[in-house]
């Protein structure tokens, strides 16, 4: 398993931020996970959008997220489809259902023996090629 420091040296593609999503990545740079919340139907939204995908309201506001969630599924990548990621293979990715409702895909850290359906997860920001990204790990 890759040491956490190994990620800093990876030459992997970073996020292709847009003007709309930039606040999410700016917050990540400060070690904060934020989500949009719809002011009309009150549901949380991820990934960032111009309108709420539930009710189509355009009244969306950024809110601090709890950073907690549960593991929905995962995979240990032995052979990455992206050559630059192969340097830290095998590594784990997974889908995390955030406490606020939305699901997001992320890199998963920690003891793989603990990977299980609905395992409790906690966000952990990791520097990858100079960018702070919201990874997740099993919360104990």
């Amino acid at each position: 398993m890759a040491d956490i420091l190994d990620y800093e040296d990876l030459n992997v593609p970073g996020p292709t931020a847009t003007a709309l999503s930039q606040p999410f990545w700016d917050a990540a740079a400060e070690g904060r996970l934020i989500l949009q919340r719809c002011l009309a139907c009150e549901r949380a939204v991820f990934y960032p959008r111009a309108i709420c995908p539930h009710c189509w309201s355009d009244a969306l506001a950024w809110q601090e997220a709890s950073g907690s969630g549960r593991l929905r599924t995962w995979s240990i990548i032995e052979r990455s489809a992206h050559p630059a990621w192969q340097a830290v293979a095998p590594y784990a990715i997974g889908i995390v259902a955030l406490e606020e409702g939305p699901t997001m895909l992320s890199h998963i850290l920690g003891d793989r023996d603990g990977f299980a359906l609905d395992a409790p997860m906690r966000v952990r920001f990791v520097m990858v090629a100079g960018r702070s990204l919201p990874f997740f790990e099993i919360s104990t």
């Binding site: 593609p13 847009t18 599924t73 990548i77 052979r79 990455s80 489809a81 992206h82 895909l105 890199h107």
Partner: peptide, 20 residues
């Protein structure tokens, strides 16, 4: 923007998670 930067490229990774 939101999947590839975490190491999830290509269809194998996604169908692996569906199988898992």
């Amino acid at each position: 923007e939101f999947d590839v930067p975490f190491g999830a490229s290509g269809a194998n990774a996604t169908y692996a998670m569906i199988k898992q």
